[in-house]
Simulated scan of single mutants.
Amino acid sequence: MIDFRYHLVSIVAVFLALTVGIVLGTTMLQDPLLNTLKAETTQLREQSEQLRTEKDLADQLNTGSDALVAAYADDMLADRLADRRVLVVEAPGVEPELRDALIEEIKRADGTVSGQLAFTAQYLEPGQATFVNELTDQLSDGLELPRGNPYERAGAELAQAVVDGDKDVPDGVAVRTGDSFDGEAVLAGFTEAGLLSVQGSPASPADLVLVIAPTEPFPLAEGQEDDGEAVTPPGNAAMLALARAFSQAGGGVVLAGPPSADGPDGMVQQARAEDVRFSTVDNAGAATGNVVAVLALAAEAEGRRGHYGVGAASDGYLPDPLPEAQPEAAPSPSPSPADRADS
Rank of each mutant, 00 (worst) to 15 (best):
183 G>H: 05
151 Y>I: 00
232 T>H: 03
141 D>F: 09
230 A>N: 03
182 D>L: 00
238 A>D: 06
187 L>C: 14
164 D>N: 02
169 V>A: 09
121 A>C: 10
173 V>W: 12
204 S>G: 09
212 I>Y: 03
231 V>T: 07
179 D>A: 13
230 A>R: 10
179 D>M: 12
146 P>K: 11
230 A>S: 08
169 V>T: 04
242 L>Q: 15
123 Y>P: 04
206 A>N: 05
218 F>C: 00
244 R>N: 15
128 Q>T: 13
160 Q>E: 06
159 A>S: 11
130 T>A: 10
222 E>I: 00
118 A>I: 08
178 G>R: 02
147 R>D: 11
189 G>W: 09
216 E>I: 09
241 A>D: 14
155 G>A: 02
175 V>H: 12
169 V>P: 03
242 L>C: 09
137 D>G: 12
233 P>Y: 02
169 V>K: 05
147 R>T: 06
220 L>I: 00
166 D>H: 03
118 A>P: 01
203 A>N: 12
239 M>C: 04
149 N>C: 03
210 L>Y: 10
193 A>Y: 10
202 P>T: 07
211 V>N: 13
163 V>N: 00
204 S>E: 11
202 P>Q: 05
213 A>E: 12
213 A>W: 15
136 T>I: 11
218 F>Y: 04
240 L>Q: 11
214 P>L: 13
241 A>K: 14
140 S>M: 06
239 M>R: 04
198 V>K: 13
172 G>Y: 13
130 T>K: 15
133 N>F: 13
186 V>H: 05
209 V>D: 10
182 D>Q: 01
147 R>G: 08
242 L>Y: 13
197 S>H: 13
231 V>L: 00
235 G>W: 01
118 A>V: 09
243 A>G: 15
198 V>D: 07
242 L>E: 13
163 V>P: 01
139 L>Y: 10
176 R>T: 13
164 D>P: 00
243 A>N: 14
130 T>Y: 12
183 G>V: 02
229 E>H: 14
127 G>A: 14
153 R>A: 02
207 D>F: 04
231 V>W: 00
132 V>I: 15
241 A>M: 12
217 P>N: 09
158 L>G: 08
142 G>C: 03
162 V>E: 03
230 A>P: 05
166 D>C: 02
197 S>C: 13
150 P>A: 06
178 G>I: 08
221 A>S: 15
162 V>Q: 07
222 E>R: 01
136 T>Q: 06
235 G>E: 02
218 F>G: 01
120 T>Y: 14
191 T>C: 09
204 S>M: 11
140 S>K: 03
177 T>I: 15
242 L>N: 14
161 A>G: 02
198 V>T: 12
245 A>G: 04
221 A>I: 02
125 E>C: 05
190 F>G: 01
225 E>T: 01
224 Q>L: 09
184 E>I: 03
133 N>H: 12
201 S>R: 10
180 S>G: 04
175 V>A: 10
168 D>G: 07
185 A>G: 02
